[in-house]
Structure formats: C-alpha cells, structure tokens
Nucleic acid binder design. Structure first.
Lengths: 188, 188
DNA sequence: CTTCTCATGTTAGCCACTAACATTCTGTCC
DNA sequence: GGACAGAATGTTAGTGGCTAACATGAGAAG
C-alpha cells in the first residue's frame, strides 16, 4: 500500500515540527539552527527543507482557509466592504473549532514575540488577503477599499491570535470576537 | 570640518540606493544580488551592509514617523479606539507633504509586487504599531482592542500606498483618505 | 527476486550577512 | 608642511539558510 509510505512521511514531518518547536522555545527562533532541528529529529538538514519550504514554515503548518473568502462573499452586498469582511470573518470563525492541545498556542507565542516572524505571518496571509479582495472587487467594491478592508480585518485577526497566545485569560474565539468588534461599531 | 566626511557618507549611501533601485526595476528584487548592487555603485558588498542593515532596507529608507502615535493621542478620548487611530492617521498625514520626485513611488511599486517585501514592510511598521498601541493603552483602551485598531489602520495605510504605487490615477493623499474612510463609516 | 518508487542521504555551491583586522582618506593641530 | 586621530572603505574568512544533482536504501508490486 502507498499508505505506509505516506504514513512514514507524515510521521517524519510531525517529528521535525515537534522538535523544532521545542528548540525554538528553549533557545529562541534565531539562535536555533536548522541543522540543530534536523539533528534533534534524527534527520538531515536536506530532509527538513523537503518537508518545510523554509525555517519559518516550521511554525506555519496550519492551512489558512479560503473558507474565509467564501464567507465574505456570503455577506449582504448592501453592507460596506468593512462590514462584509468583518461579517465574513465572524461567520468563518464560527465554523472552525477551538484548537485542541497547546501546540497552536505555543507556535503563535513564538511568532508573536519576534518581529521577523510577525512579518512572515503576513506573507502567510497574502493568499487569504488576495481571495478576500477578489471576492469584494467581484461584487463591485473599489479595489483600494477592498484591500483596505481585507487588510484591516486580517490585522485584527492577527492581533487576536497574538494577544490570545500571550495571555491565558481568553479563549481564541473570545479574542477574535473582541478584535472584530473593534472594527465594527454596531457590535462593539 | 566633519561635514565633508558626512557628506561623503551620504553621497555614497545615496549612490548605493539609486543603483539598487534601478537594478531591482530591471531584473527584479530577488534576482538582484547585493554584490551586483555594490559593483554598480563602485563599492564593496561590505560597504553596502554598513549603510543598509539588510538588502530589504535598500527600499525602506524612509523614516516611519512617531508623529503618528502622537497624533493618535491627540484625538478625543471619548472616541472608539478605531476612530482615534483613524483620526490620528488623518491628522498626521495632513502634516506630511506629498512626496517629490518619483523615487518613493518606484520603491513602493517594487515592494507592492513581492510578498516577501510586503511582509518586510510590516516589520518596518512594527515600531509605529507599538507606539500607537502604547498611546491607546495609556489612555485606558483594552490592549487587544488597541492592537486590533492599530493594525487595522496600518493595514489600510499600506493598502493605500500599494494601490497608489500601482496606478497613476490618484495622489497619495487621496488614496490614504479613501482607505481610511473605508474603516470609518462616518466619512465613507 | 526483481523492479519501480519514494523518502532520505551526500556533496557542492549560492547568497545574505557578520566579525576582525588592514588600509586609505580627511580634517586637525602644531 | 608633517605627524596624528578618526571615519569610511577594503580584505578575508567565516556562519547559516537554502537549492540542485546525483546516490542510496527501504517498501510495494509483479
């Protein structure tokens, strides 16, 4: 069966990601070398890069969903671009489950504390942003307004993620809700 | 006089930045090597890095102003965090002159077309964002809301910059106004 | 058992970036 | 004008992220 080889691949990938996370927590992202991650996972540097396109991607496993763009499109076309984007995010978020375990939180925490990684997160969002903009423009929104709305909403989302990772006093959903409400006076 | 040495330093710096911009336009950012930039400027690779902390910084000369944070603080404390941030940006922007020459536009154009550089622009904004957040939190705003508002406003600002660089049909001020209005229904 | 495939290893190299030390150039002070 | 101090640049020798080309080894399939 092909399943066994795929299983092996997935296990290797997971092992690399786990070891990377631990090392990053212990010594910091920048002071950790890809060679160290590889060694800790019992693997070659080359293999790390075959599973993760860059060192940063060791922290950005999570697939960022195009579900969001669709949800934005679902909002009433009479609403302002910002209201549609906020509404879309709220709707998309309601469908996603609260993350299990603490892996996500540990990853986000590391990202939140490093300017370069925060920036890298934006590169990771680029595709989502494009999809939202595309959706809004398709429905007649001015491109500039569409980009502004999409960027603003993603900025709020990232603020929520980072703040949630830093403190233990909110669930992720709560943080996202508060952040989005800040952009949308009707609810805040 | 010390002025002559400083003048020399500035001239070298300017020469490097100019040559870099031309090369980036001709061959693209990633396909241009720092060694090429150095050679074009009649200088060593080492010298390039003494003037610019990284290859990216060759495009981010412009000092991002803490004026913005102060302007945010000037807005009525009764307003919502988002309204204060938007108002602050509007006020700060009104003080700054429309950029002369086409250098700024050419730089932004290159940044706008490259995901990595767009991300790098966020790292460049990190300090501004921190200052805005600090200002809002100091005035009693919840940290999460402060971060969301600051991020949203900067996202809108960047959308304006990128859209302005791409097309010739707006002035920068107009683009910024439209982008900020998108976050602020009172004006949009 | 052989053959094909896919994960992994090996080697060699590019490029951004840094550190340590050497050089040249500028302005100053006598 | 000549010795000196300091700043700008050059040289050399790395480290670390990342890629390309080819080699090996272990499972699946006939």
């Amino acid at each position: 069966m092909r399943t066994e080889q795929q299983g092996k691949r997935e296990r290797t990938r997971a092992r690399i990601a786990e070891n990377a996370l631990e090392l990053f927590e212990r010594q910091g992202f920048e002071r950790t070398t890809v060679a160290q991650v590889a060694a800790a996972a019992g693997v070659t540097e080359m293999t790390v890069f075959r599973h993760f396109s860059s060192k940063e991607q060791l922290l950005f496993d999570d697939p960022y969903d195009p579900v969001i763009a669709a949800a934005v499109g679902d909002q009433p076309r009479a609403w302002s671009p910002l209201a549609r984007a906020v509404g879309g995010l709220r709707q998309a978020w309601a469908q996603l489950p609260e993350p299990e375990g603490d892996t996500v939180r540990r990853r986000v925490r590391i990202v939140a504390e490093n300017d370069s990684l925060r920036a890298a997160a934006w590169r990771n969002n680029a595709e989502t942003e494009r999809l939202i903009v595309e959706r809004l423009v398709h429905d007649g929104t001015d491109p500039l307004r569409a980009r502004a709305a999409a960027g603003a909403v993603l900025a709020a989302l990232m603020a929520a993620l980072f703040e949630w990772a830093r403190h233990d006093d909110h669930t992720l959903s709560e943080a996202v809700t508060v952040a989005l409400d800040t952009l949308d006076e009707n609810h805040g």
